[in-house]
Nucleic acid binder design. Structure first.
Lengths: 200, 200
DNA sequence: CGCGCGGTTGACCCTAATCAAAACTGGTGG
DNA sequence: CCACCAGTTTTGATTAGGGTCAACCGCGCG
């Protein structure tokens, strides 16, 4: 079943009954968790081809919102159950996807627990660039669909720190910015070293 | 195939060829990632019954070391493949386990990205307590098998901060410590509120 | 007994957060 | 077309939470 979301709108929120699994046909979705006082952690950004809505218990563990206009393909949980019955090979594929998500999540733990602001932002840019490359999309410039506040909540920082770090990178000749969304990577090698924590 | 590890010894390190999946028969395993300069992020602590060694690519994504003397049951990847062929239901179980791990990892992202030191330590104690409860083990006192440095690297903090926060909790009457390992929770309700970010 | 290691405590520092304001940006309507 | 406004981004000044460095404590072990 197809779902269309316009930028900024909500697909579901944390705790909603998790009756669907979605696959993104086109667009960008942001998933996040909130603390009672409003502090937000963005868990990830999902794009074309990504799955969304794995849930262990009966409720979603996070909220999902559209960053850009997005089209999704939704499978009801019961229908999915039948589908898996019919194509057991799919289960293996889902397991592979979940294991991959897990590895990504663990990388993000390293980032959030131990990396500096510069290392976090560099890692983010590198990951974004690698994702473009793997999707056979043009890799330069990088056009960020999400706001600074989304990036900061993803990296465990504030808007101000993101902004300052961007200008620092600019002054170091690592990147170039036209406007806030459009980024040219000028020194990929050094940016990678920063992302890996090998360079101050 | 059974494996015995004595406290402190290494099961595998990040990048090793991931040819086995393990199930912990008894003991406690710590998994972690390192940055080139030695900064460490502990990804998790695994105990009796937990699985260990899901790997997407051909290498493990983290290192695994024994916290206490540990006994594990190891399945070679090929044998596992056969096992899954024979018992397809097992795949569904593995998927469930992976999805659960993913949810735990996402909670940890919220913790690492947005929680204060006090909230992190409280969350850790609550999670430990809940795990004891779920395993039908005595819940008081909590006996921590791991060192302060393990806890700090798990929570993205330093030993000193962990230590200071323990004494703060002690002074607030939230917990009581006999020695460094043995902890009595004295005000579970407030500790839970701190863990959830609802109390300063 | 004394050594060593892990843990605690103290003094000070630094990174990133907070608070505040200016610069842009895009959209609306006169 | 341009002035205005609201929201986002950038920049600046100051603060604070947790890190770093160092001393001290306490316990187990050779």
């Amino acid at each position: 079943m197809d779902v269309k979301l316009s930028a900024g709108s909500t697909l579901f929120i944390e705790g909603d009954k998790a009756d669907h699994l979605y696959n993104i046909s086109h667009g960008c979705i942001r998933i996040h968790k909130l603390l009672p006082d409003g502090r937000r952690q963005v868990i990830g950004f999902l794009t074309t081809g990504d799955f969304l809505g794995f849930a262990v218990r009966d409720g979603y563990a996070y909220s999902a919102e559209a960053v850009t206009n997005t089209k999704l393909c939704g499978f009801s949980r019961v229908k999915l159950e039948h589908l898996l019955q019919a194509f057991p090979a799919m289960e293996k594929r889902l397991l592979g996807i979940a294991a991959n998500e897990l590895a990504v999540a663990q990388d993000q733990m390293l980032l959030l627990g131990r990396k500096t602001a510069a290392e976090r932002l560099a890692s983010f840019l590198i990951a974004f660039s690698d994702r473009l490359l793997k999707a056979d999309l043009p890799i330069s410039p990088i056009v960020l669909p999400m706001a600074r506040s989304d990036i900061s909540d993803y990296l465990g920082l504030t808007n101000e720190t993101i902004s300052r770090t961007f200008t620092r990178f600019r002054k170091l000749g690592l990147i170039e910015l036209n406007n806030a969304e459009t980024i040219y990577i000028r020194d990929m090698k050094r940016l990678r070293r920063v992302a890996g924590g090998e360079e101050p």
